[in-house]
Simulated scan of single mutants.
Amino acid sequence: MTLQWTAVAFFLYAEIVVNLILCIPFISARRWRSVFSWRIWNWLSPYWNKCFVTMIMVLIVLFLDAVREVQKYSGPEPMHDAKVNPNLYDNVHMKLFRAQRNLYISGFSLFLWLIMRRIVTLLNQVAITVENSSGLQAQMDSAVKAAKKHQDDNLMLKQALLDEEQSTSAKTQQMKLEADKLADQVKAAEEAVRKSHAEVEAMRRQAKGLAHEYDRLLREHHQLQNLQSPADKKDQ
């Protein structure tokens, strides 16, 4: 294996290991996001896209070269030469095997390179979604608590209004009873005043009758005195 294909093979092994580590189930996306937020990744981020595109181009070139080698050694002419010359048969198949091996190595390297980038992007998106959902859950819990508090306040206010209404109703009923009692007392007072007026009027009439009777008696007394006075004069 030449140096370039050895490097591609080691790159493929490294991709397999990295993808397996990224797919470990007990490492959460938020933890991977915290790892991706390290300062070294921030320092490498300006060069990441260039490195990614460059690596894709290199892997595509190697893949196309492997395809060309496979087509070269699997064509009819090399196989015909291998049949004609038996010593060349093993050499052609060995080169075909190496070309196919290089094709698989470069193809899987290119595929896993794209998969690894996609996994990293999805992990970041999942972590952001989890953080947003946590924030939304916190806001929802706060809104539920606020709504529950408002509901409790409304219930307390309704209860206070109901108590006040009941108290007002009781006070109104009591005031109505007192008003009825006062009305009865006023009626009784009016009846007493009416009776007092009637008694005063009766006493006035009686006094007036007594005055007339007194005047009549006084006149009769004067008349009797006047009658006795001439009789006494005659006796003398």
Rank of each mutant, 00 (worst) to 15 (best):
V53H: 11
V92Q: 03
N91G: 03
V67C: 04
I60S: 10
V8L: 14
A82C: 04
R118E: 11
F10D: 13
V35L: 14
V67I: 13
N87M: 10
E131T: 14
L103M: 08
Y73F: 13
N87A: 14
K72P: 00
Q137A: 15
I56R: 15
A82N: 01
Y89T: 07
N132W: 02
F52C: 05
Y89Q: 12
F26H: 10
P86T: 04
V84F: 09
N102K: 02
L44Y: 09
K83G: 06
W32V: 02
C23G: 12
K72M: 01
K50R: 13
W32P: 03
Y13I: 11
S109L: 07
V67N: 00
D65T: 11
P76D: 06
N42V: 03
I16F: 05
W5P: 00
E77A: 08
L110R: 08
F111L: 13
P46V: 04
A66H: 01
D81A: 12
W41C: 08
Q137N: 13
V17W: 05
L114Y: 05
L110P: 01
F52T: 08
I128S: 11
R68A: 05
R68S: 02
V18Q: 15
L20G: 07
R30N: 11
W38A: 14
D90G: 12
I24G: 01
F26R: 12
